[in-house]
Design a protein around this nucleic acid. Structure first.
Length: 259
DNA sequence: ATGGCTACGATCCGTAGA
């Protein structure tokens, strides 16, 4: 079972690249973020033709998340239950006995901003939600754009980023609190190339200089971590004309080890 | 030099992303 997460930065603009990438990578489940489209505008027909069913939590202009799956999506839940929020950042569903939470965590803008306070409140609500989901579903994936670079090795220039949004200590503490519930950062289960990132600034030749951050993650419950055989970032879509600023991240799970 | 792109929805600039 191959699971992926990709912040596409407009599903409308990126649809041709998304379809090409699905055909090339052939993931079983995909978490999408930053659709920037309302649910009725989501390209269900094209994705259905590509062999994917969809669960969509869309929003005009900003945010918006979706789950794609080759197998049926069951028990679809949008948003964080009990957390009042206008912003469409979460959708969850079950696929073949695996619970998948697709998340688009807030950016936070700047550490002295209201949006940063919202980011920390949002992470606290996510933690409670994940704790409840983990109690119900021992096979749990939490995947998406977390907007947190967990460690300095996930940052191209830690000195330049020190104390900034995405790497500040309260954000990293929120990240660690999530993991402390019993989740593993799948990427760190394996030897990885140094300076692997998942996002590069459109400006300043960010991608060409590999001036990036690793902020897109797939977190696995213990049961799933035991069955995980690989975790990687696919930089190929970031090299295309008119790319998303994020690259897809992926994991592979060995079905036989999930028995 | 705190900018530099990109997407969006509104106009011909502002907001947001990270």
């Amino acid at each position: 079972m191959k699971l992926a997460t990709w912040n596409v930065n407009s599903v409308k603009v990126r649809l041709p690249q998304l379809l090409d990438w699905l055909a090339a990578a052939r993931p079983d489940v995909v978490c999408l973020q930053e659709l920037k489209a309302e649910s009725p505008r989501f390209p269900r027909t094209e994705l259905d033709a590509a062999g994917y069913g969809c669960a969509v939590n869309g929003q005009k202009t900003y945010n918006g998340v979706a789950l794609l799956s080759r197998a049926p999506l069951a028990e679809v839940v949008a948003d964080i239950p009990g957390f009042a929020d206008e912003q469409k950042r979460v959708i969850a569903a079950s696929v073949n006995g695996v619970r998948v939470l697709c998340v688009y965590c807030p950016n936070g803008q700047a550490v002295d901003s209201d949006k940063y306070q919202y980011k920390l409140r949002w992470f606290a609500a996510l933690k409670d939600y994940v704790a409840a989901e983990l109690a119900r579903h021992p096979r749990l994936v939490v995947a998406g754009d977390f907007n947190v670079a967990p460690e300095d090795r996930d940052v191209h220039d830690p000195k330049a980023w020190e104390g900034q949004v995405h790497v500040s200590e309260p954000e990293r503490a929120a990240w660690r609190a999530l993991l402390a519930l019993g989740l593993q950062d799948s990427f760190r289960l394996f030897e990885q190339p140094e300076k692997t990132y998942s996002w590069w600034d459109y400006r300043m030749l960010g991608f060409r200089r590999n001036a990036g951050l690793r902020i897109d993650h797939l977190l696995l419950s213990q049961d799933l971590a035991r069955a995980c055989t690989s975790s990687s970032v696919d930089k190929a879509p970031r090299k295309l004309e008119r790319p998303s600023d994020h690259a897809p991240a992926l994991v592979e799970l060995d079905q036989s080890m999930l028995a």
